[in-house]
Design a protein around this nucleic acid. Structure first.
Lengths: 362, 362
DNA sequence: GAGTCCTCTGAATCCGCCC
DNA sequence: GGGGCGGATTCAGAGGACT
């Protein structure tokens, strides 16, 4: 990233988001979180969702022109975000039924590769006062990679541990942003109509970034994304059109303290942990050459070679290859297939021995 | 509806859905439920950690060359559905992140007025076997009126009583269609890859139709929509391209018995409603609408309504209220008063059924 | 019969480093 | 960038077999 010097890190830029995005170098941020304005079709003006909805737009042409204007705006900022995103970066977008279908369609058309749609289930949504619809109790987030070929980051193990050791699902349950977390003016009125809860951003950022990586929010508002990014040891770039919101965001971010990096690091996925060769266990004498390994049901037995290969009749090769060949399976994880039989007859998985050596260092 | 004679009511039409839709008169159905192809575009095979192969949806009907082809198809059938829909009718569509954004965009472009997006949270989704994404644990339904000016039907009180006397939210929790409900061939394999649970259709149809009204499903498959419509005393029109699916649907529908109209009617206005979600047992089919409940001495009998109320002569309302009224008592715990009579004449307390479902979760 | 264990399966855009 | 291969990866519920 030779253009790193051009990145206005940990700053809030004030101005039109498309113009500001154009100032940023390409392929420079690891993640984007965007909470764009909703499409309420009046005079081409874009409004936030708690403004009153315009009724009586029954002219198909008007509708089309309004949606067309929103779509054009959407495609423009998404295009710039995609340019600024690194090849393996991912992008999050939030919306409700008013606009989320336009967002998702535009993303797919521009080449983004959708990974999940995630539902934020609100613990305390506003009731439907007229009793004419179901209580609108959720918002939708779309998570997408820059392209279908991206090798994006997903902190699977971190998400699993956040969720009591079962896979994190696509439906998340969080309260609205209220109480002390909600930014208010001196008059006690909320500063921003759609301030998102920090817990939501916490999960988003922990899921797809590491400390030190750069998170961009083109619709920063009062700075939830930046505040959570700073606390988690991520760098941020915020863009906000409204000077008042931007000022509130800066003050809020200033008051945040970053946690120690040891705490901010996501639990490493197993793929990211240092690899231990089976040969190392042989060299160290933990699985001496000549040892006989067997599977869980003691159906097959194979002998360890001095070079870390296994031999079982004609089958010879890595612990994985021999395991697959014996089972006539397309593949096999030898670590979780082969056991050592102790003197008492008890079986011990070779993966346990690997874990020991990995935690002891090298 | 002067063209009523042309409506092929309570029939399964076999053929291309667009061609069949064009045969139907305009403004003739009250509701549409559509579960179109998702355009999954699966590439290679996927294996579980135990090396078994996932039976993915790779059927020919789900193959489209690109988004443009899928969009064109979508606009065509949606256009015909809108033509066939009555002015005040509503349309439901189901999708996943692969296609739902295309669906929603097309609907808005065609003039549909979105009322809600509803999330079906799956109790038992398939896990993400490679640990590369969040578990895809939901599907999205879009509910829309024919136009912004439609005076559509929403059975608010019925939804509220189904939901423990609290407004029904936009996030619904149901198990997948498995076990006895899942249609299987003689080989024991599922007949259709994407059969929807009847509980889902129960809630959909009770929310937006009345007995006698007409429900159209242009992608009928093995007939879930029609079966639930018949049980609820609604008329149906089903369109299915595959003769095998259509035959299975016809047999399934034939075996369904309509509940008495008194049970099928949604409550016209607010009343005292069940404290506990008795309605959940109704939706899940554990205490089907139309069932007759009786007390321990078989002195009184009352019929279960589709919205979770009880009806016994003039007495109508929650299981508790009706029990109290009949006994002329100040109060009554309906859970420990009402029984279901089995075929063998044995009585079973509804509280036992509640206990079962409560321990199973939600 | 009660309890335990095992097997099967569901709308799935499901790996990544090294050579 | 393509091929080879090491090795990482699952939850809930139903149903059947077995103790």
């Amino acid at each position: 990233m030779g253009t790193g010097l051009d990145l206005p890190l940990d700053e809030v830029m004030v101005g039109d988001c498309i113009a500001m995005l154009r100032r940023l170098p390409p392929a420079s941020v690891h993640a984007v979180f965007a909470d764009p304005p909703y499409n309420l079709q009046l005079k081409g003006e874009l409004r936030r969702p708690d403004d009153s909805i315009v009724d009586g737009v029954d002219d198909a042409w008007d509708q089309f022109s309004d949606f067309a204007a929103y779509d054009a705006f959407t495609r423009e900022w998404l295009t710039e975000c995609r340019r600024v995103l690194r090849k393996d970066g991912t992008l999050w977008v939030v919306g409700s039924y008013h606009n989320v279908f336009r967002l998702g369609t535009a993303m797919q058309d521009l080449g983004f590769w959708i990974l999940n749609d995630v539902i934020w289930r609100k613990a305390n949504p506003m009731p439907n006062f007229r009793g004419r619809r179901f209580t609108n109790a959720h918002e939708t987030l779309i998570w997408a990679a820059r392209g279908a070929e991206s090798r994006y980051r997903f902190n699977y193990a971190a998400m699993k541990s956040l969720n009591d050791d079962v896979q994190m699902r696509s439906d998340w349950y969080f309260p609205l942003c209220t109480g002390a977390e909600r930014l208010r003016g001196e008059d006690g009125k909320k500063l921003h109509p759609t301030q998102k809860p920090e817990a939501l951003l916490h999960r988003v950022l922990v899921s797809c970034t590491q400390p030190g990586e750069v998170v961009l929010d083109p619709f920063l508002g009062t700075g939830t994304t930046a505040a959570v990014a700073k606390r988690l040891g991520r760098r941020f770039i915020g863009i906000e059109r409204d000077e008042g919101y931007a000022a509130a965001a800066r003050a809020r971010i200033e008051a945040v303290e970053a946690m120690p990096e040891s705490a901010a690091l996501a639990l490493p996925n197993k793929r990211e942990q240092p690899r231990v060769a089976f040969g190392l266990l042989v060299e160290r004498g933990l699985v001496p050459a000549g040892t006989t390994l067997t599977d869980r049901h003691k159906r097959w037995r194979a002998v360890v070679g001095a070079d870390g290969t296994l031999r079982c009749g004609a089958a010879t090769g890595s612990i994985h290859k021999v395991g697959a060949e014996l089972q006539q399976a397309p593949s096999c994880n030898g670590w979780t297939f082969w056991h050592i039989e102790g003197r008492d007859g008890r079986l011990r998985l070779i993966d346990e021995i690997r874990t020991e050596i990995a935690t002891q260092g090298l």
